[in-house]
Write a protein that binds this DNA or RNA. Sequence first.
DNA 1: AAGTCTCT
DNA 2: TAAA
Length: 203
Amino acid sequence: MVAGANFNFNGCQVYKGYLDRFEQHALLSELRMIVSKAPLFSPLTPWGKPMSVKMTSAGKYGWYSDHKGYRYIPKHPNGTHWPEIPRSIQAIWHDLCGDQPNPECCLVNYYEKKAKMGLHQDKDEKNLMHPVLSISLGDDALFRIGGQNKNDRTESIWLSSGDVLVMSGASRLAYHGIDRIKYGSSQLLKSGGRLNLTLRVVD
DNA sequence: AAGTCTCT
DNA sequence: TAAA
């Protein structure tokens, strides 16, 4: 569908408007199913502060954090297996990442009005070469990305509902985060806020 | 520090 | 309040 990315920074590609409104709503109903089986929760950082972002996962693994550190776990804290990753989400992965193994984790992050996420690297996976794909739904978010060192120069871009971002190659281990969201900027979520889906190969 | 504080 |  999309020939090429329309933003590129250190190899991080952003496909603005990848999902149309119809596709965004379809994705949203898939997410409602996931959240009903695997409710959102606020993980604790390893140093005991609750994260402002609420999250859950789908797939073989879910991302988790507490005093023991960042890791992937095979079950939701409620003891049940994570729901399966919907086919429609897998299709986006294969469209943009091509010949890659199937994603094993679809992390669902929910940002309410004041939620943000500090600069970090995605490095809890066994093979750090597989791409990371992120889908934005709902309110606009100010995304910041730098290089592989925390003090590298950073650049910011507004992500909107329907945008898809892929971090591969040089950007796979780039520091990135969300500085803030523009609460109420999208009508997609009746409740307001932003949903972000992150697809990763874990093993 | 996947947070937060501080400085502008 | 936004940038870093």
